[in-house]
């Protein structure tokens, strides 16, 4: 394991050091003293892990392709921006637009997320991005979603409080979303279908949750299919009437 001291360094320096270590074949890197440096793990290609202590800055794991990043605490905005594959595990909260245009890979968040998380997520054949949010999410979750999977667990919430905000899944035209806890149709954007998860859906949820719990070393409360609401698109052309003549 390679340990890099990052206290007080500019992000260009940090990223260059990570790059050098990575290109030299180092596949386990720990970054100490991170404090707001941006673009950590950007376009890292190949399998390997990066552990971060401290709070990484914006665009953690941007364009990343295969690596795994562990963050003990919180992270800032744009986690997993346009990520290709790999995994980002965050022990705390993250802020807005995490998983923007994710094309594959996984983002596990133990705490809550901000606005517009998982927007523009895509999927194609085996590329299948997954985001699991432990507690709550802000508005516009999964906006313009074209593929992939988002699960919101709503842990540690008082009963009757919805774990997600408003305008959920507006413009969604692919993929699916599962929300545990209370969710009313008014919270979703137009043209969205709401249902209970099917047996296959629940198996899928459970398989990802098992991985999530293992990665975050946590115990999940008992769950049953009826705890979840499935949110899915009813059309692949949400704006067909708006743009076409």
């Amino acid at each position: 394991m390679k340990v890099l001291q990052c206290q007080g360094k500019h992000y260009r320096e940090v990223n260059a050091e990570v790059d050098n270590a990575w290109n030299a074949g180092e596949r386990e890197i720990r970054l100490e003293g991170i404090n707001g440096q941006r673009y950590i793990g950007r376009s890292l290609t190949g399998v390997g892990t990066i552990e971060i202590s401290g709070i990484p800055g914006d665009d953690l794991g941007v364009f990343m392709d295969g690596a795994t990043i562990f963050v003990r605490g919180n992270a800032q905005e744009g986690v997993g921006n346009t990520m290709n594959s790999g995994k980002i595990v965050v022990g705390g909260d993250i802020r807005d637009i995490a998983g923007y245009a994710m094309r594959g890979g996984k983002i596990w968040v133990r705490g809550s997320v901000g606005y517009r998380v998982g927007i523009h997520m895509k999927s194609y054949l085996s590329d299948y991005p997954v985001i699991i949010i432990g507690e709550t999410s802000g508005d516009f979750l999964g906006e313009y979603m074209a593929g992939g999977l988002i699960i919101v667990l709503g842990l540690n919430l008082p009963a009757g409080v919805s774990p997600v905000g408003k305008f959920i899944a507006s413009g969604m035209h692919g993929g699916k979303m599962f929300i545990r806890g209370s969710f009313s149709p008014e919270q979703a954007g137009p043209g969205i279908g709401i249902d209970r998860p099917s047996d296959d859906d629940y198996l899928e949820i459970i398989s990802y949750l098992t991985e999530y719990a293992t990665d975050l070393a946590m115990t999940l409360p008992p769950m049953k299919p009826d705890d979840f609401v499935k949110v899915y698109p009813t059309t692949t052309r949400p704006y067909g009437r708006v743009y076409a003549y």
């Binding site: 523009h120 895509k122 999927s123 194609y124 593929g147």
Partner: peptide
């Protein structure tokens, strides 16, 4: 090429939802 399912719309909305300011653009 676009990594979206066949036959579904490819939507690029007007704003980049991660850019609301010059600082965001810089990012």
């Amino acid at each position: 090429t676009r990594k979206i399912p066949e036959g579904s719309d490819a939507i690029s909305p007007a704003p980049h939802h991660d850019i609301y300011s010059i600082e965001d653009l810089e990012r």
